[in-house]
Design a protein around this nucleic acid. Sequence first.
DNA 1: ACGCCCTTGTGAAAGCACGCACAAAGTGGG
DNA 2: CCCACTTTGTGCGTGCTTTCACAAGGGCGT
Lengths: 234, 234
Amino acid sequence: MTPRSTRPRERGIPEATVARLPVYLRALQGLAERGILTVSSEDLASAAGVNSAKLRKDLSHLGSYGTRGVGYDVDYLVYQISRELGLTQDWSVAIVGAGNLGRALANYGGFGTRGFRIAALLDADEGVVGDEVAGLRVGHIDTLEDVVSAERVSIGVIAVPAVAAQGVCDRFVEAGVTSVLNFAPVVLNVPPAVDVRKVDLSIELQILAFHAQRKADGRATAPPAGRIGAKEKA
Amino acid sequence: MTPRSTRPRERGIPEATVARLPVYLRALQGLAERGILTVSSEDLASAAGVNSAKLRKDLSHLGSYGTRGVGYDVDYLVYQISRELGLTQDWSVAIVGAGNLGRALANYGGFGTRGFRIAALLDADEGVVGDEVAGLRVGHIDTLEDVVSAERVSIGVIAVPAVAAQGVCDRFVEAGVTSVLNFAPVVLNVPPAVDVRKVDLSIELQILAFHAQRKADGRATAPPAGRIGAKEKA
DNA sequence: ACGCCCTTGTGAAAGCACGCACAAAGTGGG
DNA sequence: CCCACTTTGTGCGTGCTTTCACAAGGGCGT
């Protein structure tokens, strides 16, 4: 614990790096569970499916947490990434929509890891209100505002049909939620201060179809080079 | 139908553009349903949540399908984008995992739009094999290879727990599937010729948490600027 | 038939992201 | 105590993305 520069990072982690940190975190937690104490950038990169230089550069944005000639201390790095991502505090999440998707989300064990607490699961359908899902009782959509303020919900998850999504989003925003995760296939309109992320099955399928067509349309001009996967064998 | 250059695009649409085409397509279909025949890049961009210059450049990669001073013919553009994405042919999709997530996917009406056909919904749990979901009977995982070859499945969807994902993926690959959509929170290992896309709830949540923390940690250095959303009012 | 006005399509510039390759830094053996 | 080896952290070149700004093209009113 030498004093170091005391100024590891100076704010401003590239968005592309932020998007990969959760992947590194998961890989590290897997290593930790297997009792591995130290890992090199090469090994961690391989576990996370990225280039090792990219991994090192990503981590360098958080500070100098590695030891040359040795690698990274797994537990320490888990802690640093968790802290950077804001997972050392708990975030309350409200899920709207208790259909199959909402239930799948609610059952998503421990919500990735810890750090997220499902404060409520709401639905507009009287038929499902009152059901128990993942140890939670489904509440009525009309209690959204109460739940958000009582439970200090900071992240809203929208798992309702497309036509209802903007309405739910507006209510979240009105209630003070500034982070929204949207599973409905619509573009949400929100004020600039609100952060929206989208998860969209049909978009992913269509992107796959595009590349599949490439492969089928006679020899493609370039290999698929999927943005995410396409790694070589272990 | 003037002869034009007959060489509208020459192969090689940027990946970033491909990822946005489905969004444009959906926006256009919405316009078409409302009976709108023509749209300007400005209006379409607004509906899709992007910058109009970006939209024009994206569309220019497909060819010159607009009319200066007027805009784009909605139906024609729908057709061109569909064709480019490979949606004018049908793709057979097999979903493995008939839990809440698998069911949610199977029920995802018309699978976005048309273009995708669910050839099978499979599960390893004898308890759910035989259930009817979305007009489909859940089959046993052991029939995966048969289904893939009999139904000419080209896209495999993995909606199983993390520990089972790699195994299912291997079976898909072995059976000849070259496009995989993975919902399990693991990095899949596949040969280079296979295209994998990942949808991961907990990663999205963690990215939101990062930005939320930024907002909370005193005035952020920069506004959130969510990759996806954060548009202004209509 | 002419000219005004609107909107597309695209050069050019700026900003990011990626990956190579290497110097710096730390470990362990002799 | 020194040297050989390992692995990090990063400067730099390259290519992709985004955005601006505007010339070219086409419709419409007169």
